[in-house]
Design a protein around this nucleic acid. Sequence first.
DNA 1: CAGAAGATCATCT
DNA 2: GATGATCTTCTGT
Length: 198
Amino acid sequence: VTTIRPVARAFFDRPVLEVARDMIGALLVRNDATGLRMARIVETEAYGTNDPACHADRGQTERNAPMFERPGTAYIYFTYGMHWCLNAVCEPVGTPAAVLIRAVEPLEGIEAMRVARGPKIGDRDLCRGPARLTQAFGLDGTRNRADLCGTDLFIGPGERLPNEAVETSPRIGIGTKQDGRPWRFYEADSPFVSRGKR
DNA sequence: CAGAAGATCATCT
DNA sequence: GATGATCTTCTGT
C-alpha cells in the first residue's frame, strides 16, 4: 500500500478532458503524520478554456491564480460559505485548466475519514461529493497549491478501470447542460458516484 | 460599497 | 423536491 507512487507530472500536462477521463480509477492518497488515507477516484469534472463555468473564464484573479500554475498543482477553493473543493491543475503553465474531483471510493484510512466526517456517516457517504471528500481527507485552503505529484498528498495511477465503464456511463456528459453551459463530466460505474441512488 | 451568485450539503416534507 | 446554512469572490456603481 505504501509503495504507491504519484503519477509523473506529464500526466497533468495534457488536455484537461483527457486528464479528467484518465483520472477515473486513479488513486487519491494522503500519507503524512495524520496517517494514511487512500481512495479511488470515480467521478471528475473538467474545467478549462471556452467554458463560462470555469473560474478562470474571465481572466486571472487572486482566487483562480493556481489554475494558471504548474500542472499537478492542487487548486482548493472555498464555496457556499463552508465547503472546500479539490482540483488538479492541468495543461501547461499559463493555460488555466483543472479537474474537479467530485467523488472517490474510500479504500484506506476509513476510520480517520469517519472521524473527520462524523461517526454516523456510512462508508458510501464518506466521500460521495466534492466537499465531502475534502472534509474526509482533511483538506482545506491551507493545502492550496500543494503538489499532487508530491509525497504526502498525491494522485497515483491505481488500477486501470475498463474504459467502457467510463465511456458508457449513463451520466457522462461531454456536451451542453440545459442552460447552455458546457458539461464535461466523467464517472465510473460505481455506487460511490455523487448522484447515484442505487 | 452594496448586491448577487456560487464547481455544496444536511435536513426536512 | 425544497430550503437554510454561511461567507468569499466578483461585479457594477
